[in-house]
Nucleic acid binder design. Structure first.
Lengths: 237, 237
DNA sequence: CTAGCTCAGTTGGTTAGAGCAGCTGACTCT
DNA sequence: AGAGTCAGCTGCTCTAACCAACTGAGCTAG
């Protein structure tokens, strides 16, 4: 029945064509319309919130959610962390997934990427160089993220962008929490520039090779420290 | 605080290295251990259930979930349906995502796929032929699904397989519910066989081309019927 | 007249207690 | 010894009350 409740609320959203951000009926209203107690309504809403379908703002109301991939990040992160602690190579599996998506996309990019995006990417690689040479001696994670996001922006596929960012986020979270990955910022910069140059020159094969090399590099570094499995590394996410 | 509760339960699972299927404390036990009311415990568990992290069995107990991608399917399906009804090309975006993943994977497959898997794939394509020539005159969806699942089985990446099946499921659900896609079973069979042959002959480029052609075919059929947007096609999922 | 504060009303958040419903396992009757 | 039954666990739903966050109208002070 709880299951059914969720479906009925979803149906409400779909049937009324409610866009993201639209206000949903208040809890008492839903109680009456669905003929169940407040408790059940709340449990259904909680579940829908966990799936990103609704957004609940305390003292304000309930709204149709942004339909982002945020809940997927959380689920994926948890799954990967749990798998890692149980000795599975879940982090590597996540990396392979990222590699597959990006390698499959890069072909569509080469040659059709707008000049404006290329300029943005140039700026990002320049920033990587600066960060590598700077006091930290490492490329900031945010810069790496921005590069990969900017790369596929021109495809005009919101779902694609969000899924890739979700994968990136989950990977990043788990990596920083669980394993101490050595960085060679010079190599990182070089590989990103190679990807960019390949895309710019419309060379599909070279672009795909560059992407795979980049991920191969991450993979190598991942295996290097033998997956530091701390005895009880308090999980705090 | 509800947020915090979920985190504490997740931390419980992680810290104790509980594998999928392990029993979790009962609701009264969680009440006491976490110092909150039963209602709050239940809402947290509902949210975790929606993310696939726990599994609740009425009259039996609460268990660590299978960590499958099932919740993602649901979220993705809903997102796609909602987007479609609002006039977005969300179904096409989902298809592009599938294409990207499969195109990015096929290269790793060509040449390294075991003979046993090839035999399974042969059998599946044969079944497709039989179904196409049979009374229904169309390839069963389950057969198509099985083909794509079997193709990447040998990569030994559970996450990958599940994500791809999740994408397939979401796509299939939305397509069958929303748009009336014309099928040419002969073409479907031919394209699957071409993919299989390309993989068997270790021809990376040909395999990738075959995959892209297959998805291109689906894409064409998707656009053909001008996305039948019914006025109020009662949503029942 | 306006800027800021205050307070009432609305909305979601939490607690408590009671009874319902599904499953298991031991006990009993045949 | 086997099948039926019942007590006990488990999660599920409901009711009712109060807490906490936010909004907006109205008031007060500048």
């Amino acid at each position: 029945m709880a299951r059914d409740l969720q479906e009925r609320i979803k149906k409400l959203i779909i049937d009324q064509r409610l866009p993201s951000g639209s206000p949903l009926p208040t809890e008492p209203e839903l109680m009456e319309r669905l003929g169940v107690s407040r408790n059940s309504v709340r449990e259904a809403l909680k579940a829908l919130q966990a799936m990103g379908i609704v957004e609940i703002r305390h003292g304000f109301g309930t709204y149709v959610g942004p339909m982002s991939m945020a809940p997927m990040i959380e689920g994926l992160t948890f799954r990967t962390v749990a798998g890692h602690y149980r000795g599975e190579d879940s982090l590597l599996q996540l990396l392979e997934l990222r590699e597959a998506v990006e390698a499959g996309l890069i072909a569509r990019l080469a040659g059709s990427i707008p000049a404006a995006d290329l300029a943005d990417l140039d700026a990002l690689v320049d920033r990587m160089d600066a960060e590598a040479a700077g006091p930290a001696g490492a490329v900031r994670a945010e810069t790496d993220r921005a590069f990969h996001a900017a790369l596929y922006r021109c495809l005009g596929n919101r779902l694609l962008s969000e899924v890739m960012e979700a994968f990136w986020d989950a990977f990043h979270k788990v990596r920083t929490d669980l394993v101490d990955v050595p960085q060679d910022p010079k190599v990182t910069c070089r590989q990103h520039r190679e990807i960019l140059d390949a895309v710019r020159s419309s060379d599909v094969l070279r672009a795909e090779r560059a992407i795979r090399e980049h991920f191969g590099n991450i993979r190598t570094r991942l295996n290097a420290p033998a997956s530091t499995a701390l005895p009880h590394p308090s999980y705090d996410r």
